[in-house]
Write a protein that binds this DNA or RNA. Structure first.
Length: 294
DNA sequence: TACCAGGAGAGCG
DNA sequence: CGCTCTCATGGT
């Protein structure tokens, strides 16, 4: 039966934390709910005890695409119980039980994280809003709602000039996004194929793209393809690992990266998202005596 | 004003 | 391999 509204059972699902946790950048709060675009569909989400209600702009017969995006079928308890049983992970889970990983479109995820480097989340959101407004196709929206746009295709961005991209405030990231868009649009790399490769091979293909290093590759592996063992190490995670696990030794990035490959288990990516959220939302660590100027 | 932001790439020892 | 520097841009 075709309908514009659907209810998904969703225990232990903190929708607000999930949509604002830095894995996705285009959801906006609206009347107790959230409005966004998934692929080429306008979507409104609202959570109420134990479920998520979704509204779309036109009738839909098959809702699997949204269940897949939200990962509502996931055995979440199994994920939590696979975490290492240590104090940092207990604190991180205790601070925000219900934080989830979405399953995004690979191209949108890849392009978004190319634009994320040394930018704060609010600024990433601003860049992407400009990019979608200018180069994304408009999508149907229920009457009374603001216009909404699909994420621009690689083919569309491949035909845009670097100067036009820089006008979206992306700075030195513009040539990276443009070059990667051209590789994808030309068919030289098929993003859909990476889903079926071993994670290391998929990662290697992503790192070959201009503007994509280990961190951004791991974001795409985790947030788009769902490789649960991918563990993006950014500045926040690096601080978290150093403070929580190596308070005295302070290893560098390469050693920390190797640590994450074995320590956090089969759902390391989920553990990473909990540590990231925990570091970003808890009160700042006290400044050590002597580090103060005045 | 100075410093920093979910990094990547190039140059160096 | 591991360190350092630069690359735009906006916010505090």
């Amino acid at each position: 039966m075709n309908r514009c509204e659907q209810v998904f059972p969703a225990r232990d699902y903190d929708l607000a934390a999930t949509l604002t946790s830095g894995q996705v950048f285009r959801w906006q709060p609206h009347d107790n709910g959230w409005v966004g675009v998934i692929d080429r569909r306008w979507v409104r989400l609202e959570s109420a005890d134990g479920s998520i209600t979704a509204c779309v702009a036109g009738p839909v017969s098959d809702w699997n695409w949204l269940a897949h995006y939200l990962q509502t079928e996931l055995d979440f308890g199994a994920v939590l119980s696979s975490f290492p049983d240590d104090e940092p992970m207990r604190s991180a889970v205790g601070a925000c039980r219900g934080l989830r990983l979405l399953r995004q479109d690979p191209w949108e995820c890849l392009a978004s994280f190319i634009l994320s480097s040394t930018k704060q989340i609010v600024q990433i959101r601003q860049i992407l809003a400009l990019l979608c407004e200018r180069y994304g196709d408009p999508v149907p929206v229920p009457t009374g709602h603001a216009p909404a746009f699909a994420f621009p295709t690689a083919a569309r961005l491949a035909g845009v000039s670097e100067a036009e991209l820089r006008n979206c405030k992306m700075g030195f990231r513009a040539p990276y996004l443009l070059a990667t868009a051209r590789v994808i649009a030309s068919g030289q790399l098929d993003l859909a194929r990476l889903q079926h490769l071993p994670v290391a091979d998929s990662r290697a293909e992503l790192i070959n793209l201009p503007g994509v290093g280990r961190k951004i590759a791991d974001c795409v592996l985790l947030f788009a393809y769902g490789f649960q063992d991918a563990f993006p190490v950014d500045v926040w995670i690096m601080k978290a690992l150093q403070q929580l696990y190596f308070p005295r030794r302070r290893p560098g990035l390469p050693r920390l990266q190797r640590f994450t490959e074995t320590y956090f288990g089969s759902n390391a990516g989920y553990a990473q998202q909990y540590l990231f959220h925990y570091m970003r939302t808890r009160r700042p660590a006290p400044v050590p005596r002597g580090a103060l100027k005045g």
